[in-house]
C-alpha cells in the first residue's frame, strides 16, 4: 500500500505540470488587453504609449517563452504572479478568499455523502417499492435542478419564514464550527443537492449490481446472516464504483461553487473567477484555474488511494 501511494503521488507531478502548461497557454489566447481596459477605466483615455509602458512594467511585453519560464519557475516557490487589476500577489488575493470556498466545498461534500449513503442504500434494498420511487424522483430532480435556482428558492424560503438570511460574516471553521456550519449549511445544501443525487444513484445501482454477483450467492450459501451478507460482502464492493464517482463529480461541485457563491453573495474564489473574467484579469484567471484543476487532481489522488485501500486487486498489483 505504501508503495502504491508513493507511486501514485509521483504520477501526479507530470499531470500537474501539464495542467499548468495548458492553463498558461489557454489564458494567453484571451482576446482584449486587460491593461487597456484598466487604463480606460482609470483615466477614460487610451494613450498607446501609456499602455505600452504599463504593459512593459507588468512584464506583458516580454517574449512568451520568458513569461512561460518565469511562470513555471515561480509556481513551485508558491509564486503565481500578480493580479493585473490590483497588482497584488495572487497568492495573497486568492488566499484571502479561498478559505470560505474550501469550507463550502468540504461541507457540501460531507452533506452530500451523509444524505446520499442512507438514501442510495435504502433505495437499493427496497427496490421497486414506493420508497424507491420517491428517492428516484428526488435524485433525478437533483440532476435537473440548476443549483443557482435551488439556492434562490432556499433564500426565498428563508426570507418567507425566518425573515432574514444567515449572516455571511463567517466564523472560522476551527474557531466556532457550529456557527460556521450554520452559515454555510444552506449554500452547501444548494450546491450539494446534485452531488448527493449522483452519489445516491450510483450507490443504488452498484449495490443492486453487486447483490447479483456470484459471491453474494456464495455468502448466502454459507448461511451467513443477511445483514452480514449485505454489509460485509455487498457494501464494500458497491463502494468501489461509488468512490470513483465521488472523485469525478467533485469537478461539478467546484463548478457549482461559481454560481452558488454568486447567489448567496459569498466572497469565495468562485465569485472571484467571474470577476476575473469580467475584468479580463488574465493572470488571476490563470491562478484560479490552476488551483481548481490542481484541487481536482489531488481529490482524485485521494480517491484512488481510498480505492486501493478498499480493493486488494489494485493494492497488490504494484
Amino acid at each position: 500500500m505504501l508503495r502504491y501511494t508513493a507511486q501514485r503521488l509521483l504520477l501526479v507531478i507530470p499531470t500537474l505540470i501539464a495542467v499548468a502548461i495548458l492553463v498558461f497557454f489557454l489564458v494567453r489566447v484571451l482576446p482584449g488587453d486587460p491593461v487597456e481596459v484598466k487604463l480606460i477605466g482609470e483615466f477614460g483615455d487610451v494613450n498607446p504609449e501609456l499602455i505600452y509602458k504599463e504593459r512593459k512594467r507588468l512584464g506583458l511585453e516580454d517574449p512568451l517563452h520568458i513569461q512561460f519560464v518565469n511562470f513555471m519557475v515561480g509556481l513551485p516557490q508558491g509564486d503565481m504572479g500578480i493580479s493585473l487589476v490590483t497588482e497584488r500577489p495572487l497568492t495573497e488575493e486568492i488566499g484571502a478568499r479561498i478559505t470560505i470556498s474550501i469550507e463550502l466545498a468540504f461541507f457540501a461534500t460531507l452533506l452530500s455523502v451523509i444524505i446520499a449513503f442512507p438514501l442510495g442504500t435504502a433505495a437499493a434494498l427496497y427496490r421497486g417499492t414506493w420508497f424507491d420511487y420517491v428517492i428516484r424522483i428526488i435524485t433525478i430532480g437533483g440532476l435537473a435542478v440548476p443549483s443557482f435556482w435551488f439556492g434562490m428558492l432556499i433564500i426565498m424560503a428563508l426570507l418567507a419564514t425566518v425573515g432574514k438570511l444567515p449572516s455571511l460574516d463567517t466564523a472560522g471553521l476551527f474557531e466556532d464550527p457550529m456557527a460556521n456550519l450554520y452559515t454555510l449549511f444552506w449554500p452547501a445544501l444548494s450546491v450539494g443537492y446534485r452531488y448527493s443525487s449522483v452519489i445516491a444513484r450510483m450507490l443504488r445501482s452498484s449495490i443492486l449490481e453487486v447483490l447479483a454477483e456470484d459471491y453474494i450467492r456464495t455468502a448466502r450459501a454459507k448461511g451467513l446472516y443477511e445483514r452480514i451478507v449485505i454489509v460485509k460482502h455487498g457494501m464494500r464492493n458497491a463502494l468501489l464504483p461509488t468512490v470513483t464517482v465521488v472523485g469525478l463529480e467533485f469537478a461539478f461541485l467546484i463548478g457549482g461553487l461559481v454560481v452558488t457563491e454568486q447567489v448567496f453573495n459569498i466572497n469565495g474564489i468562485g465569485k472571484m473567477f467571474v470577476e476575473a473574467v469580467q475584468f479580463n484579469d488574465m493572470t488571476m484567471l490563470q491562478g484560479l484555474v490552476l488551483i481548481v484543476a490542481t484541487s481536482f487532481v489531488l481529490i482524485n489522488l485521494l480517491v484512488d488511494l481510498l480505492y486501493a485501500a478498499l480493493d486488494p486487486r489494485i493494492r497488490y498489483q504494484a
Partner: peptide, 12 residues
C-alpha cells in the same frame, strides 16, 4: 487533462 477542469470553468 481536460477532464480535470470543471465543465463550467472550461466553458467560461
Amino acid at each position: 487533462l481536460l477532464l480535470s477542469f470543471p465543465i463550467i470553468i472550461l466553458a467560461i
